[in-house]
């Protein structure tokens, strides 16, 4: 995959996440498209490739958001590393594994964000939000994974022999 194409595609995914998905919230929660993509890609392609996705998409989200710069990059990198480890435990990744990893990854990323925000002086009430929102977010992300996983599987097959410059 051409690097600039990857940069634009992850930029578009980030824009979808902040502009379109919040309009589709259910029960006060909207899905995390970029997280779903990074987890799925880590399972399909491995940790190195997913880390590149995490850095690019994280930088996009950090630029598009209003909080501390680096919060999303750090969270996504941790998620990519974790999901990459999950891939090593199985012969072939499946949607079921993707869901399981997604549940752990959603919890991990939210936990990292709460910890970083808390370190930077956010309200302790954020911890309550973490406990209430994460289960709902896992469910909604799971639905998005149902759609995203086949698409990313197809892309992985199409670009299976290509390598990114940083890979």
């Amino acid at each position: 995959m051409m690097p600039y194409l990857l940069f634009l595609a992850l930029g578009l995914a980030s824009l979808l996440q902040i502009a379109l998905f919040p309009a589709l919230r259910i029960g006060g929660v909207y899905p995390n498209l970029v997280l779903v993509m990074v987890v799925a890609w880590a399972l399909l392609r491995g940790v190195r490739s997913a880390l590149i996705w995490a850095v690019i998409a994280g930088a996009w989200l950090d630029l598009l958001s209003g909080g501390w710069f680096g919060v999303y990059t750090l969270g996504l990198m941790a998620v990519a590393a974790l999901a990459g480890l999950g891939r090593r435990t199985v012969y072939r990744p499946t949607l079921l594994l993707a869901w399981a990893m997604l549940a752990i990854a959603t919890t991990l990323q939210n936990g990292i964000q709460v910890a970083l925000l808390w370190l930077n002086g956010a309200s302790p009430l954020l911890n309550q939000a973490f406990l209430r929102l994460t289960p709902r977010e896992i469910l909604y992300n799971g639905l998005v994974m149902l759609l995203a996983y086949p698409v990313l599987t197809w892309i992985e097959r199409k670009t299976g022999h290509e390598r990114l410059p940083l890979e």
């Binding site: 590149i52 850095v55 630029l63 501390w68 710069f69 680096g70 919060v71 750090l74 590393a81 940083l166």
Partner: peptide, 26 residues
Amino acid sequence: RWWPVIIAALIVAVVLLNLQPIDAPR
């Protein structure tokens, strides 16, 4: 090839976390 990238990114991220909002790029 890939561990330095992670370490460098982590260092950059941690450094940037300590800088207040980078308004110009945003």
